[in-house]
Design a protein around this nucleic acid. Structure first.
Length: 288
DNA sequence: CAGACGTGGGT
DNA sequence: TACCCAAGTCT
């Protein structure tokens, strides 16, 4: 255990948010759903969606029994609706291969659609209490600041980051799981990307970035995501129309929300290829 | 491995 | 207002 552990664990014990998927009785399925929803979507928007989802589909088998389009509609405005599709596919796989249970090994989790390294590790750690290094954007930022004195981590995870995370992981399973969520929470609430609250940080005295006077990011400029006029915006508009509709939607209603014919057609084809939409006749589309 | 992939809220 | 950001995954 390094000198970081006690202060961060104590801080977490005092300041952790009370989130449903952290309750002792939260099922692995509840944890898995939360992790997928939290991929690139803020906690505040996940909270009600997670509650409604678990209400409707308390188990993977329950979700698997419904159409994938139901999952996409239930996903609502969380963004990246492919996650809903993959979660449904994962529920199907769990029902077929794992007796309707969330698997508890890394390889089995990684084999599920939409479950990458982070989510697999998070589920093992938070749902099954296994000691696994968990490397998300919060953890990476905390590590780069405290250990390396840099404001932001680079785009790609470096090998040493996994080494650091593994080295810092407590041996004891339960402590390891708490440690991982504690570092994430610290990154989410205190060691934030913008305007970090160093005054409230339990390890401010140990932080390399603070010791060096908060040097600004000096790597390659972080690329933002274009939005206006992009296919992503177009796809979002199209999906919103179909999601809000009862059944199949005629092409004319899709034309109404995106003027550029070529781009709209391309996006429609893309959405069909992704499985987010299915053609319903020559001029209509529906959820799968 | 760089780029695609939604959405809404904070500053 | 415009830009930044939020517990990533997949190709």
């Amino acid at each position: 255990m390094s000198e970081l552990h006690a202060p961060i664990l104590d801080w977490y014990a005092a300041h952790a948010r009370d989130l449903p998927w952290r309750h002792p009785d939260a099922s692995p399925w509840s944890v898995l759903v939360s992790e997928v929803m939290l991929q690139q979507t803020p906690v505040s928007r996940v909270l009600p969606a997670h509650d409604a989802w678990l209400q409707r589909w308390p188990t993977p088998a329950a979700l698997a029994a419904d159409a994938p389009g139901d999952a996409v509609r239930m996903w609502g405005r969380l963004g990246y609706p492919r996650r809903a599709l993959r979660l449904h596919a994962a529920a199907l796989a769990m029902t077929e291969r794992h007796g309707g249970e969330v698997p508890s090994t890394y390889d089995e989790l990684r084999a599920l659609p939409g479950i990458g390294d982070y989510t697999a590790s998070a589920v093992l750690s938070f749902a099954f209490g296994q000691a696994r290094p968990v490397l998300d954007t919060n953890v990476r930022r905390v590590h780069w600041r405290t250990l390396r004195g840099a404001e932001f981590p680079p785009d790609a995870v470096r090998a040493h980051e996994r080494r650091d995370a593994a080295y810092l992981l407590p041996d004891d399973d339960a402590t390891a799981a708490t440690w991982s969520v504690a570092v994430m929470e610290l990154g989410a609430l205190v060691c934030t990307a913008r305007d970090p609250r160093c005054g409230a940080c339990p390890v401010a005295e140990l932080c390399a970035w603070r010791a060096e006077g908060h040097p600004p990011h000096d790597g390659p400029p972080r690329r933002g995501q274009a939005w206006a006029g992009t296919d992503r915006q177009c796809r979002g508009r199209l999906m919103a129309v179909v999601r809000e509709a009862d059944g199949a939607v005629h092409l004319s209603r899709l034309e109404a929300v995106w003027a550029d014919d070529a781009q709209r057609d391309r996006c429609l084809a893309g959405l069909v290829a992704d499985g987010l939409l299915v053609p319903a006749g020559p001029t209509a589309y529906a959820l799968p």
